[in-house]
Amino acid sequence: MSRLFRDVDGGPRCPHGSVVCIGAFDGLHLGHRALVRHAVDRARALGVPAVALTFEPLPREFFAADAPPPRLLSARAKAQGLVDLGVDQVGLLRFDARMAGMSAEAFCRDVLARRLGAREVWVGPGFHFGKGRQGDLATLRAQGRELGFDAGEIAPVLLDGERVSSTRIRAALAEGDFALAERLLGRPYAISGRVRRGRQLGRKLGYPTANLHFDGDTPALSGIHATRVHGPGLDAWPSVSSLGTRPTVDGGEPVLEAHLFDFEGDLYGSRIEVEFVARLRDEEKFDNLADLTAQMHRDAEQARALLHHDRRATA
């Protein structure tokens, strides 16, 4: 993505100025979308690029590297989602020891003013930044007066009287409440990625799967689910998916394995999106493959019934 940059160093990216929004943007929920769209609208009014700044890894992942908290969206999906919302440039700034030690004032001077030529900077409620999270909206405004940009905060987006947040979405997913997660996100919760070739054990058991890996990220949910798969030649294809560490066969890194019902084709190398519809059960460790296969039959039957009912209800 040519509009993507990772570094705080380098020459000016926006010589004629920009409007910048800053956030973790994990999930790109309704609150994030309101912030990004406001920044894009302001950029269009001023005739300058809209820039979204976020961090990879997320700061909370950097400071808890041994036990990273769950995340809702991969870096690639987040960047693409920001572009889809109208952002002209996406800064996935490397959050490392140097970034963690950068003062709020240095961030304003070196990143917002020098690198991006910010004319306006927009953040969400309760935003903090810089070393020790010492910077806030008041810091942005004070620095902006010296460096030539304005700063503002959008109003919180509420749902059922509570602020929309990634924390609420993670809690909803952990409870299998995909209806609430969808309302908070503004779209069904889904995980996307490129299908990789696995050990093909599922094929031997009669359940070939399309496998997505997380490359060190911690998924926000686990277990067996009724799902729909979107991708090339796929239109909400009904499926049953397992997300977890596969304790019966290897107990390794988390993998999302989607079995598409009555599907014949090769998805290896394709980018797909797995949409979660309903939680069936927790992941289990079985004594043998025969017991695992018997449970897979029951899971598939339950998922088919749920998806058939759901499709009729929403038709």
Rank of each mutant, 00 (worst) to 15 (best):
R271W: 15
V277Y: 05
G251H: 04
D250H: 07
H259S: 13
E283G: 15
T245F: 01
G252N: 02
P238N: 03
A294R: 14
D250G: 04
A236R: 12
S242K: 03
R298S: 10
R298I: 12
H259K: 11
E257T: 08
A294H: 10
V240P: 06
G233T: 14
E301K: 11
D266P: 05
R298P: 09
P254T: 04
R271P: 13
A290C: 11
D282P: 09
G252C: 00
W237E: 06
E275M: 12
R281M: 01
Q302D: 09
L260I: 08
R298G: 08
F263C: 01
A290L: 14
E257A: 09
G252Y: 01
D299K: 04
K285Q: 07
T245Q: 09
P238V: 00
A300K: 09
E301T: 08
A290R: 15
T245W: 03
F263H: 12
Q302K: 11
F261L: 06
D287R: 12
A278I: 07
H297F: 06
A278H: 14
V255G: 05
Q295S: 13
F261A: 02
A258P: 12
L289F: 07
A258I: 03
E283Q: 15
L243M: 02
F263M: 08
E275R: 10
F261C: 03
E275W: 02
V249Q: 11
V277H: 04
E275C: 12
V240H: 00
D282Y: 05
A278M: 06
G233I: 12
D291V: 11
P254S: 00
S239A: 15
V240M: 08
P247C: 07
S270Y: 06
E301H: 10
D235H: 09
F276C: 07
S241F: 03
E264V: 15
D282M: 12
A258L: 01
V274N: 05
V249A: 12
G251M: 11
G269C: 05
P238K: 06
S270M: 11
S241T: 14
D266R: 10
H259N: 14
